[in-house]
Design a protein around this nucleic acid. Structure first.
Length: 203
DNA sequence: CACTAGATTTTCT
DNA sequence: GAAAATCTAGTGG
């Protein structure tokens, strides 16, 4: 019984979707035999013209084109000369209002051995605890940019779960503008998130 | 544990 | 030509 999240799930503001996707299951189909999966434990919201930290802030370009399209598609970009980042497109209101959520961390559950090969480490909390790590572990690159993640057989999709997660929020990570907005959501007290907020660090 | 520097290349100014 | 929604290895306490 497939429980793939439908387009309706993504057809909301990036803030709402980023919060609701915590605890859902990310599924990556490499082939009929190789399935990777894990629970999404961290995500950030990005908006369009009203969010200076968003790639869509200055309008549509060749890179961010997917952000301006239909919700429920993957937006994958390359950064820092080495890393890919996985995003899901959420609701947009006008041509110039794009939005998406950045998937920042996953708690691995299926295909852990393959992820360990991709990442060249066996430490579970270092397999997908960051946007770049996650893409390396799950074999995600720009060839997946634009794919429809609501199709039950899509190479990337998200399945519903009945798990209830406590969600914390903080400032977004790695940006230089709009740092005051607390648009990062993560599973409370979960060791697979990329970074704990300052007050909670040091045990 | 906390902090810093360097890698490396796409993208946009 | 500069900056980037990052990661790792290295240093110091």
């Amino acid at each position: 019984m497939s429980s793939v999240l439908t387009r309706e799930f993504y057809n909301k503001s990036s803030l709402a979707v980023a919060r609701k996707i915590i605890g859902k299951k990310l599924v990556r189909k490499l082939s009929d035999d190789a399935i990777l999966a894990g629970i999404i434990v961290e995500a950030e919201a990005y908006a369009g013209r009203r969010d200076p930290a968003s790639h869509a802030y200055r309008g549509m370009t060749a890179r961010n084109e997917v952000m301006f399209g239909e919700p429920g598609h993957a937006y994958v970009y390359f950064t820092y000369g080495a890393h890919y980042c996985l995003n899901f497109v959420t609701r947009h209101f006008k041509t110039e209002e794009a939005s998406a959520i950045l998937i920042r961390a996953v708690e691995p559950s299926t295909g852990i051995e393959i992820m360990a090969e991709h990442r060249k480490t066996n430490l579970a909390t270092n397999l997908a605890s960051g946007p770049g790590k996650l893409c390396q572990a799950f074999g995600i690159d720009r060839s997946l940019n634009g794919v429809d993640i609501t199709h039950p057989e899509s190479p990337i999709r998200v399945e519903d779960t009945s798990e209830i997660y406590s969600v914390s929020k903080s400032e977004r990570i790695g940006i230089s503008v709009a740092k005051d907005r607390k648009w990062r959501f993560f599973a409370s007290n979960n060791p697979h998130v990329s970074k704990l907020p300052r007050p909670l660090r040091q045990g």
